[in-house]
Design a protein around this nucleic acid. Structure first.
Lengths: 213, 213
DNA sequence: AGCCAAAGATTGCGGCTACATTACATGCAG
DNA sequence: CTGCATGTAATGTAGCCGCAATCTTTGGCT
């Protein structure tokens, strides 16, 4: 059945991966980024609903459709109440399955993200957008990282090593004033955009962002 | 039937309101704050799916379960593709309906919509059609997948690995700039069709789709 | 208060590299 | 056999970013 299903999905250009066991599915769900999980109840290494319960226990947000031969009302109720989002009993029409998958995929896992606000600055870590007084200001990658790092702790000192680590991950970035140069360029842009915040140096320690004097 | 359903819900301490017409339901959905909307297709003043379409058009996020005597596969597919979240054919067991309502409620409001809209772009994941300013533009499979993936997160950065995974599932597609080539071809088509959105590169990270400057 | 050394600020320059684009080859489908 | 889709590779290009030279500021010390 899996083969037939994969074939039908492939024909419609729906990308799908297939594994046979709960253990494998668990790994895939953890590692991969899938729009929907289709799950059979009877599996070689156990009951599919246990995986549903386990995933939901871990707050895994992936929509799950349970697919099974156990079609009684009680089974369906159990399936849905275990945390699945839909439940389809065999035999089923492939078109209906596809439509239900689309419905689940449409909905997707919803992640709400947060802005970092301070003064008239607004940083969106999800999109790397920075707004100054409501208008978008472009910052190149490294400058953005510096500014985001500072915005995570407004009014607080961020040490020089912290900043370097935030911007350069692991690459050894020794011997140069590259960081200072970035700060300088950021300041110029902030000034141009009339930001109400400023970046101040703390001698021998690092930098901080705060309301403009 | 409405009376029986209300009675069953009331007995389980589920709060529910009931109206008879699409017009009334529209008002209620607009004004009230409901966890789930249960909708019949045949209604005194029209087809229930029209209300679904109208609500989704307005980005109304309420989960919708369509309940109807029209139980053929085609009807179910239509129901789900109109933007509903679940579809249950009569006759049904009250317990199953309740379980499905719980599943919908658990998941909470959605922005589910048949189309992914952004700018003057409109993507229909069900048919793989892409409209630019209302007119259909043909995209080959790979290009479509890239664009759909970007449209799922407008204004958000989609990492290069994410895009590769979305387009190539498992087949490791390393060592080539195939993705870049697709992006380039998509851009050309979008330009030709006068789209109001553009695809921007985020150096070392990935791409994002956003309103044209 | 004045001086000096060290830290920080600023800026032009140039190289590097990721990205963009195009042409071409391959392969599959009708 | 023809046409389109798509991967590959070659080439072009922009702009980021590090460097270093120079200027400014700071704070400690006498």
């Amino acid at each position: 059945m899996a083969r037939a299903l994969l074939e039908a999905l492939r024909r419609r250009d729906v990308l799908a991966d297939h594994v046979r066991t709960i253990a494998d599915a668990d790994v895939m769900a953890r590692v991969g980024s899938y729009d929907v999980l289709v799950l059979d109840r009877r599996l070689p290494d156990g009951e599919g609903l246990d995986l549903v319960a386990a995933l939901r226990q871990r707050k895994h947000p992936v929509p799950i459709l349970v697919l099974t031969a156990l079609g009684s009302v009680d089974h369906r109720v159990d399936g849905l109440d275990s945390g699945a989002d839909d439940y389809l009993a065999k035999p089923f029409a492939i078109e209906e399955l596809l439509a239900r998958l689309r419905a689940l995929q449409r909905r997707g896992p919803t992640v709400s993200d947060r802005y970092l606000n301070f003064g008239n600055l607004s940083v969106d870590p999800a999109t790397n957008d920075i707004f100054v007084g409501g208008s978008l200001v472009e910052f190149p990658r490294r400058e953005y990282l510096v500014l985001e790092t500072l915005m995570r702790r407004p009014n607080r000192i961020v040490t020089r090593p912290s900043l370097v680590e935030a911007v350069y991950a692991f690459e050894d970035e020794i011997g140069s004033n590259a960081l200072d140069a970035h700060i300088s360029r950021i300041r110029k842009k902030l000034l141009l955009a009339e930001a109400t915040v400023e970046i101040r140096a703390v001698r021998n320690i690092g930098y901080l962002i705060r309301a403009k004097a």
